[in-house]
Nucleic acid binder design. Structure first.
Lengths: 116, 116
DNA sequence: TTGACATACCTCATAGTTAAAGGTATAAGC
DNA sequence: GCTTATACCTTTAACTATGAGGTATGTCAA
């Protein structure tokens, strides 16, 4: 098994942010709402979670931002840099490893527990 | 979306412990090794993670233990109590919600990123 | 014109979990 | 006698998401 973070399951918000920004540039407030929308309310992260991620990823050079005025509102749009794609692939691969591990361990759950 | 823990993604070790103990009673050291085995080394949790879980779940009445001497070795075997099954179902349902959310958000990843 | 609400940015303290490393003791194999 | 595996345990530290807070602008209705 591969070591990742002190708490190995964390980093999902970062994964989703990178994934969404791989489609098109977005601003923080938009990401917060979009994550709720695309996951059909299954997942949702507050601004106190998303903004720090955007800032630290930009500091790492994974994201770049530009300021835009839209309808008199100031927004910071973020996009993936060249370093963003490999980072996204790495996180996605880690997620897939975790997912597979849990599926293996949970195998046969439905047959025994009808409610699940 | 449903609120769970301060860090919503945690609790996977507990889920796997409950799942394995729903099959048969096991002792701590055995659980540590079994989790690695059944997940094919995809996941692994140290004793510093598993033992506190066993203790707190027993305190909550979700698990019960009995001491056994096997080959001159003292082992504490844990099994699910009546309160264990619903707890397992609840955690499994939460995991399924998270999994579905991520699948939705990641949709179409493979088509765009060949390496994943 | 005042108030409420949505947008859009941000920070901080807290809670909770896992990783990593340490410790004790017994049994088995060389 | 030494090492390795078993089997239990604890503690420290790192990290992350939550929840609550703050600022400021724009829109709309009363």
């Amino acid at each position: 098994m591969v070591k990742t973070n002190p708490n190995f399951m964390n980093g999902v918000p970062e994964l989703l942010v990178l994934r969404l920004l791989s489609e098109r540039e977005m601003y923080g407030y938009e990401l917060v709402k979009e994550i709720r929308a695309v996951t059909k309310e299954s997942l949702g992260f507050g601004e106190g979670c998303i903004y720090p991620i955007l800032h630290s990823l930009e500091e790492d050079g994974v994201l770049a931002s530009r300021r835009r005025q839209v309808n008199g509102r100031s927004r910071y749009y973020y996009r993936l840099t060249a370093a963003g794609a490999p980072r996204l692939e790495k996180l996605a691969a880690e997620w897939e490893r975790v997912r597979r591990g849990i599926v293996l361990a949970m195998g046969g759950m439905r047959e025994r527990f009808a409610g699940v």
